[in-house]
Amino acid sequence: MNLIRFALCLGVVLASPLAFAEATQYPLTIKSCNRDVTFDQAPKHAVSHDINMTQMMLALGLKPHMAGYSGISGWKAVTPQMKVILDGLPELASKYPSVETLLNANVDFFFAGWDYGMRVGGDLTPQTLTPLGINVYELTESCAFVMKRPPASMEDTYNDLRNLGRIFDVQDRASALIAQMQAKIADVQNTLPTSKPRVFLYDSGEDRAMTSGKLGVPHALIEAAGGNDILSDIDASWTRINWETVVERNPEVIVIVDYSEVTAEQKQRFLETNPALQSVDAIRNKRFIVIPYVQATPGIDNVLAIETLAKGFHPQ
């Protein structure tokens, strides 16, 4: 059973009179990056930005609390499964919503991240939205853009699910979903060999490579799947590096993120035909793994990414 289907079933089970966690007591104060955010009640008109955060909200059964979502159709193709789940929920903006868009929808909660709908000094930030009555919760992994923090791990996503559970008073759903994710990852890790191939994640770019350092979730996925992230010493989240660095560190496997107008096949063809990369082991041996954007960004589909990566890293 995949996690989105599990979460939908979970909503039915936990709608029963049985309850396990103590109900949220409002006002509730939550830590979001380096801020404290206080909620007087569960949000009633929430908006999630990007497919990964929208998936988290829907997996927790929060559709009735949502005014809509943003930042999906303008960047990524919506899968048939996601289309069914999103049915009836309006997309307020195909890419980035404006402050006016959120105000017109009477939004009281915005779930987004730095470099996932928000940018430092931009129009949409906690500093601009809070005075307008819109509480902002920041994606934990993205906090690396605004504060010093440790390398990314799956605990970042678990933290987000726990906090959403408390904010919306659905702690049981959050706990059950986290347990399901942890169990699936443990199943994968129990079968991993001790050998770890050198791995490079390629998002996009030709002059330079868009990739992720140790503060981005791809680092956590590669390590959890039994790989050795060649950029584990880079103190950055999503970032750009020179091709010389890739050649020097000589990855044995290249993970390609599939999204947007440039297809994964086109990205692979570029890598295979780039004269500067012909000495790289992954290129010579044609060892490529493709994962979709929603699996490469923090969210419940990280479990699917870890399963796919582990099989690709250790085909034996």
Rank of each mutant, 00 (worst) to 15 (best):
D50K: 14
F6P: 05
E22D: 13
V12S: 11
P64S: 13
L8Q: 15
L62C: 03
F39I: 10
Y69Q: 02
G11S: 11
A21T: 14
F20G: 00
N34L: 07
R5G: 01
V47G: 00
L18I: 13
K83G: 14
Q55D: 14
Q25P: 00
L62A: 05
F39K: 08
K63A: 04
P17E: 06
L18D: 13
A7Y: 06
L62N: 03
K31L: 10
M82K: 02
L62W: 07
S32G: 11
Y69T: 05
G68H: 12
S73A: 10
D40L: 02
T29F: 07
K44S: 12
K76H: 13
G71E: 04
F20P: 00
A46P: 02
P80W: 08
K44M: 08
H49N: 10
F20M: 11
S70M: 02
A19T: 14
G71T: 02
H49I: 03
L18N: 11
S70H: 08
A7E: 02
P43Q: 03
K83D: 15
E22Y: 03
Q41L: 02
D40C: 00
R5W: 00
F6C: 06
G74Q: 06
K31Y: 00
S73R: 14
A19G: 10
D40N: 15
C9E: 15
A59R: 08
I30Q: 03
V78T: 12
T54I: 11
L14V: 06
A15K: 10
A46E: 03
T54S: 10
A21G: 03
A7T: 09
I30T: 07
C9K: 12
Q81Y: 11
L58M: 11
M82T: 01
P17K: 09
H65W: 00
L18A: 14
V84S: 14
D36Q: 15
I72M: 08
L14H: 05
A59I: 08
G61K: 05
I51N: 05
K76P: 00
C9I: 05
V84I: 09
F39M: 09
M56A: 08
L60N: 07
D50L: 03
M66C: 08
A42S: 13
E22Q: 15
I4Y: 08
K83P: 00
S48Q: 02
P17H: 05
A23G: 09
T79A: 12
K63W: 02
A19F: 07
H45V: 04
M53R: 12
W75G: 01
M66V: 03
Y69F: 14
M57Y: 09
C33G: 13
G11L: 03
A23P: 12
D50Q: 13
A59K: 02
V12C: 00
Y69V: 02
P64C: 12
M57I: 01
L60C: 07
Q41W: 01
S73G: 05
H49C: 02
H65E: 09
R35E: 07
S32K: 09
T79V: 11
L58C: 05
D40G: 14
